[in-house]
């Protein structure tokens, strides 16, 4: 290879080296168990709250 690049020619666009578009879904995983107590508490609050 005998590529030569002058330092002052560095403002070449990088757009043509951008990542190719081929999306793949990557859903967030469940890592934390739902806390039973607050859920139960909020359910009870809703059920017995003064209307």
């Amino acid at each position: 290879m005998t590529h030569v690049l002058e330092t002052d020619s560095r403002h070449v666009t990088l757009a043509r080296h951008a990542l190719p578009a081929a999306p793949m879904a990557m859903p967030d995983q469940v890592l934390e168990r739902r806390r039973a107590r607050p859920a139960l508490f909020s359910m009870l609050l809703k059920r017995f709250a003064w209307k």
Partner: peptide, 28 residues
């Protein structure tokens, strides 16, 4: 082929960086 991209925000650090690649180009 060599690609280069820089993220505006480095959300999720390295794991987020790799996930961003998959969401952009992973299907290839």
């Amino acid at each position: 082929d060599i690609f280069y991209r820089r993220r505006e925000q480095n959300t999720g650090k390295k794991a987020g960086n790799v996930a961003d690649f998959i969401r952009t180009s992973g299907a290839l």
